[in-house]
Design a protein around this nucleic acid. Structure first.
Lengths: 252, 252
DNA sequence: GCGTGTGAAGATCTTCACAGCA
DNA sequence: TGCTGTGAAGATCTTCACACGC
């Protein structure tokens, strides 16, 4: 019942810059005609925002594309191209006003909104994420947690009482999370994902080591420790392949 | 001193398929002339491997590109293109032999090797990763952990005694990790990264919310919860922007 | 002058479609 | 016949380089 969030209506003003963008969409279900932002650009916005927040915290009020790009670890031309998708926020010969750009990007990635988040699966990772989410970022608030283990259901983690996974639909209906984080074992992940999406959550952050299938219209991002390590190992093996072809055995 | 790994030399045989691949490398420091594998392909290998392991576990011995691609969530043509970078492992008219392909990809991403991993920063996330790494994946073994907090140094996490961060270089020299996972607060991450790289670790998995700068030749991959959530929020806001322009206030 | 915003070129990545082989 | 492996085409993403406007 208690979902840790009260809603206070505000005068929200997201200014969408219209722009020509026709993409070869096969299926057109009459969606809102907004500027088509490249996925690659979207993925970099958080880095830009972070760099801007840092600059702002240091009292910097103006920044050039070169400086900001360096802070975000990209080329300046790429930064300018990315920003251009949203409109013109810079001044030629000068640069960007930090607070202006910060607010602009912030609106796009949801700063100024507190996004209610559901955590499914309260293992080590789920717990860590709950604490992390509860402390570090004001834009995202864990409002509910569920687990299938009776020993965990009912306990309080990061100030939230863990509910039973069989009540998943009820919890979603009550707390109306916009984002779900899945940290279940891999076997359960797809089923949980299906249920969560069916219940109306269309954004999923998946920490389970499986490839999730979702219906058209929903978004999944998967973060997979093993896969990240394997990608690093691939590069590492190419740097020093000889020693790595060895096999090592554990002591304990 | 004790680093939880003993080394047993084996007859390692990584079969590198030579292939013509000239890329516009500006700097050529006489590196080994190996086939240039696209980064996008590398990032998908772990998914393919996982799907293959699943199939193998289910007793499946042969798989077509269509089936394997579906399991990995990609188009079949893309899978075939990806695999073609490493050579021909399929049989026309039949498909791929699961064990053969599994072993092949496995060798590239380091299966068959136990990669020693160092964890820097033993907070909630570091602990969760240590347990995760210690349990789920046999290819990666946390061999050492360090932290700067005196209250944490000396404690045992996932069977490993946490060492002092000031001994970082000594720990690296003793345990020779090939990969370092950074889970420090953001302020400390860059400095830790520099020290770890200077000590000879060239692969970094960064969980700290900062853009790390590393020297040429090293690899960093950053996993950032807040950024992932912001990317989801971006998409979510475009699905239902009206309600999201509101601001919510926390109850507790 | 200086730095943004952007056409045009280039690089990379994905898909198409089919030749080639079991 | 059926499925792989791959040229060629297409889509997407990045960089170049410079016109434009403060």
């Amino acid at each position: 019942m208690q979902c840790n969030l009260a809603w206070v209506r505000h005068a929200g003003n997201v200014a969408w810059v219209r722009r020509a963008a026709a993409s070869s969409q096969t299926r057109s279900v009459m969606s809102t005609p907004r500027p088509q932002i490249p996925e690659a650009t979207i993925a970099r916005l958080p880095s830009y925002l972070r760099a801007l927040v840092d600059l702002d915290g240091n009292g910097v009020t103006t920044v050039s594309s070169t400086e900001l790009a360096e802070a975000a670890g990209v080329q300046s031309a790429l930064l300018r191209r990315d920003l251009s998708h949203f409109g013109s926020y810079g001044t030629r010969g000068v640069g960007y006003e930090v607070p202006v750009l910060m607010r602009e990007i912030g609106e796009h990635v949801g700063t100024g909104t507190v996004w209610p988040v559901l955590v499914v699966g309260v293992g080590n990772m789920g717990r860590a994420l709950a604490h992390h989410g509860a402390s570090l970022d004001v834009s995202f608030q864990v409002v509910a947690m569920v687990d299938s283990n009776p020993a965990i259901v009912g306990t309080t983690v990061a100030g939230i009482q863990v509910r039973d996974q069989s009540d998943l639909e009820a919890v979603v209906a009550e707390c109306r999370p916009r984002i779900a984080i899945i940290t279940t074992p891999p076997e359960a992940a797809q089923q949980v994902c299906d249920r969560v999406v069916a219940a109306g959550v269309s954004s999923i952050l998946n920490f389970a080591p499986v490839t999730l299938t979702i219906p058209e219209g929903a978004t999944v991002r998967t973060v997979d420790l093993s896969q990240e390590l394997q990608i690093l190992a691939f590069h590492e093996a190419r740097r020093e392949p000889a020693t790595d072809a060895d096999t090592k055995e554990l002591v304990r």
